[in-house]
Design a protein around this nucleic acid. Structure first.
Length: 192
DNA sequence: AGGAAGATCTACT
DNA sequence: GTAGATCTTCCTA
């Protein structure tokens, strides 16, 4: 397991969203490790993207302008959603982590989620933050720094998979291009 | 004060 | 598979 450097996030959000598939989301919790493989993401852009927080208000726009590789967390319908800031230069942008495949620490995840079935533990943006015990206090932490409580890493051997493109879920006004990406055939994807 | 929001759960047809 | 209720935060009037 090798932590991913900051530069990785200094690209267009859709690029980063694609490349985050198959990577590991690692949550350090006391002596325990919670690990999940990222299987579904969505890209959000600057103010021209009507579904982006950046388009809502200047306050949100500012948050999305911050340094790449940091978390960006907000609540929707009583769910905390986990994003990673990703953009080029002065643009605002972020990648929403929509689903992961539970790999390690699944017993704790079941406890936090109050659910038993593996496939319902982390197959949605609000579900995975519950399973990983992520909330507002995890806002603005760098996922490229070894000592952070939440990091993103790559596996030793790159596996092969097909990436499916689709339109984003739940957004009222979407862009003309599909900005949701997921691993083909993976059963932990929130919605086929 | 009111309503919308990048969702989830439940209870049904 | 899908409709409806429901959790909180923040924006707009």
């Amino acid at each position: 397991m090798e932590i991913i450097g900051k530069k990785f996030y200094q690209r267009f959000p859709d690029k980063v969203a694609r490349d985050l598939l198959g990577k590991l989301l690692v949550r350090k919790l006391d002596k325990n490790l919670l690990v999940g493989k990222i299987v579904e993401t969505e890209a959000y852009f600057d103010r021209h993207d009507p579904a982006s927080r950046a388009a809502v208000s200047e306050k949100w726009h500012k948050k999305m302008l911050r340094d790449v590789g940091k978390t960006f967390i907000y609540m929707v319908h009583n769910n905390w959603l986990l994003n990673i800031i990703a953009h080029k230069k002065q643009d605002a942008g972020a990648v929403l982590i929509r689903a992961v495949e539970p790999l390690k620490g699944t017993e704790l995840m079941k406890k936090f989620r109050n659910a038993d079935k593996l496939e319902f533990l982390t197959n949605g943006p609000g579900k995975l933050t519950q399973a990983f015990k992520i909330d507002k206090t995890f806002d603005n932490i760098p996922v490229y720094v070894e000592k952070s409580p939440l990091i993103i890493a790559r596996t030793k051997e790159e596996e092969n998979f097909e990436i499916i493109e689709a339109f984003r879920i739940g957004v009222k006004k979407d862009l003309s291009e599909p900005m949701r990406f997921y691993i083909s055939g993976n059963k932990f994807v929130s919605k086929k």
